[in-house]
Nucleic acid binder design. Structure first.
Length: 569
RNA sequence: GGCGCUAUCGUCUAGGGGUUAGGACGGAAGAUUCUCAAUCUUCAAACCCGGGUUCGAUUCCCGGUAGCGCUACCA
């Protein structure tokens, strides 16, 4: 029997199953594993848990790699479960040979509870009614052939109620509501001879773990502490499916044992599964590794994150595409369910590594505080995208994530930020040069929260022609059209002779304001609008300096024209 | 239904038998400023409920409630 490699270097793994895109919860699990391995000079392993052939997709594998690549954290070893099936089977049969597992010839349930609904019932046999109940939508299902009626109204959502109702119906219909399922009758007791005979005859079977009913299974979780569960409460779970494929539990444990994983850091949804895993490790002759379960990430409504219900905010690539810095995203995720126990929030990768410990992990679920995009908002999306408005809107992200991102952006050197901004700008303005970008960046660094904001914050630097704006925009505070015109004309008159540098511009325009008898702000505002096309923009002199004399004068001319038309009316 | 886990401002959290229960985001107000940001200052905002233990519980114990998870030949 091997020992958990406490003394050796820690080995941790991230083991996603490629059944969907990489979502934020998985990303956080990856990050915590990574931090633990780096903190303790251990090994980070990526293992694709792809034993569910039915649901695995290449697209999902792509999405996971894409997301992980963006995070930029990396790993040391990589495995695919589907390439290690022999190992899994070998371990399963070794457990069988010790008498700790048995063949179950009961036909498989026909996929009981798929998301789309029950397949066990013929839809024609069911009448489903919904009605409003306090806080949610209640569901009543009538099973026509038997006349059985069930109502679920206590769940939070219609879908949950529907699920619950189906469950209740099934229980009422199945031999008058049996208790908790532990094993299929007759199967654990099958003699070895009969079992072998039926198997040899080609009868399909699943291999099930023989859970010892009289024992108590224990383990110590690094986050949740001492855990114990009576064997009488653990069902005889499957190890091998009737097609010979290993189940998740078996494959996962077999690989964790074989890969000498020392610490399993994963979502809390596996906490109760861990009792089964401890059983498998023991039966296979291995000491179980150290477990550490992470609190779940949930949506503002308390339910677990799902793309269907909560939209694109649960997918890692959405954050990437909206212009989050990976470092900021990582920082944000770390603060969900973990705390450095001091008052730091903005943390660099180094700081995170140094501060990370399993002790800092919290036990309660953490809400990702995004605003839901209602599923029916496909229309809104289309409108927004067509109008060039960024999608999804900023409010759909957790405000703390956005703030943290702005904070990391501000912490970036001009050169570094400029390099990240340029490709985004170039998508819309192919002519943008690195030199220009470098000059624009300092003017917007404090003004953008997401990288994509560069497009709205700095558009006028790259645009040939300003989008149309209302002439009234040109009128300064406590001023009128005449004042705007006066100011613009004055600027037009003196700017050709001014050097386009901050100080000379400052001096010249302030002097002009005094000369005209207007306040500095009243002088600057019309010029700003003339040149930027809007009131809110970076400081004027720096902006003019970057824009250059030619563009400035051209835009001033256009503004004078515009103002002139208004004034003459 | 069974089993398990959890419960501090709206959100993320610190704390812990005696505290004005701390920080951050978000919100409000103000300062600064050529606008917008950034920055700074200030304010509002929380210990789920009920018992017990105790001189004293938000903190420890029990119960309740609520939420979540697992209860598949999914992972």
């Amino acid at each position: 029997m091997s020992q958990p490699s406490n003394s050796a270097i820690p080995r941790v793994r991230f083991a996603p199953s490629p059944t969907g895109f990489l979502h934020v919860g998985s990303a956080r699990t990856f990050i915590f594993n990574w931090l633990y391995s780096r903190r303790n000079h251990g090994t980070m392993i990526l293992r694709l848990d792809d034993t569910d052939v039915e649901r695995n997709t290449d697209a999902s594998v792509q999405s996971i790699f894409e997301g992980l690549k963006w995070l930029g954290l990396g790993w040391d070893e990589e495995y695919k479960q589907s390439e290690r099936l022999e190992l899994h089977r070998k371990i399963a049969w070794s457990i069988f040979n010790k008498g700790l597992a048995y063949r179950d010839f009961t036909p498989a349930h026909t996929s009981d509870s798929e998301k789309s609904g029950p397949t066990k019932f013929d839809p024609k046999d069911l009448r489903v009614d919904t009605f409003i109940s306090p806080g949610s939508v209640a569901v009543r299902i009538t099973h026509l052939p038997s006349g059985t009626v069930v109502v679920s109204k206590d769940e939070k959502s219609e879908s949950k109620n529907r699920e619950q109702a189906l469950l209740m119906l099934r229980e009422q219909l199945n031999e008058g509501g049996r208790g908790t399922w532990l094993f299929n009758p007759g199967m654990p007791e099958l003699s070895r001879e009969e079992s072998d005979r039926r198997a040899a005859a080609g009868e399909p079977f699943a291999l099930r773990f023989r859970v010892p009913r009289s024992t108590v299974v224990r383990f110590t979780d690094a986050v949740y502490g001492e855990q114990m569960k009576a064997g009488a409460d653990i069902e005889d779970f499957a190890l091998l499916r009737s097609d010979g494929m290993p189940t998740y539990h078996l494959a996962s444990c077999a690989d964790d044992a074989d890969l000498r994983i020392s610490h399993i850091i994963r979502g809390q949804d596996h906490l109760t599964n861990t009792f089964k895993h401890v059983l498998i490790f023991g039966a296979a002759g291995y000491a179980p590794p150290q477990f550490a379960h992470l609190p779940l990430l949930v949506a503002p409504d308390g339910t677990k994150l799902s793309k269907r219900r909560h939209g694109p905010v649960v997918s890692v690539t959405t954050y990437r595409d909206a212009g989050f810095l990976p470092q900021a995203f990582i920082n944000f995720l770390c603060l969900l369910g973990w705390s450095p126990k001091d008052d730091r929030t903005k943390m660099s990768q180094e700081e995170l590594i140094n501060a990370f410990s399993l002790e800092g992990i919290n036990r309660a679920n953490a809400v990702v505080n995004f605003k839901e995009i209602a599923p029916g908002d496909g229309f809104r999306e289309k409108v927004a995208v067509a109008a060039g408005i960024p999608w999804p809107p900023e409010e759909t992200f957790d405000p703390k994530a956005v703030w943290l991102n702005a904070e990391h952006i501000r912490g970036l050197a001009i050169e570094g930020l400029s390099e990240r901004l340029l490709p985004i700008v170039r998508e819309q303005f192919p002519n943008a040069t690195p030199e220009k970008m470098l000059r624009v960046t300092p003017l917007i660094r404090e003004r953008i929260k997401l990288l994509r904001d560069v497009l709205t914050a700095a558009d006028f630097f790259f645009l040939d022609q300003l989008p149309p704006y209302a002439p009234a925009e040109l009128i300064p505070q406590k001023g009128d059209a005449a004042m705007a015109l006066k100011v613009l004309q004055k600027a037009q008159e003196l700017l050709p002779n001014v050097e386009f540098k901050h100080d000379p511009l400052d001096y010249a325009l302030r002097a002009a304001a005094q000369e005209l008898g207007v306040k500095a702000g009243q002088m600057f505002q019309p010029i700003r609008v003339a040149v930027c096309g809007r009131k809110n923009a970076p400081p004027l002199f720096e902006t003019l300096e970057v824009l250059g004399k030619e563009t400035t004068l051209r835009r001033l001319g256009l503004a004078v024209e515009k103002m002139g038309q208004v004034a003459s009316r």
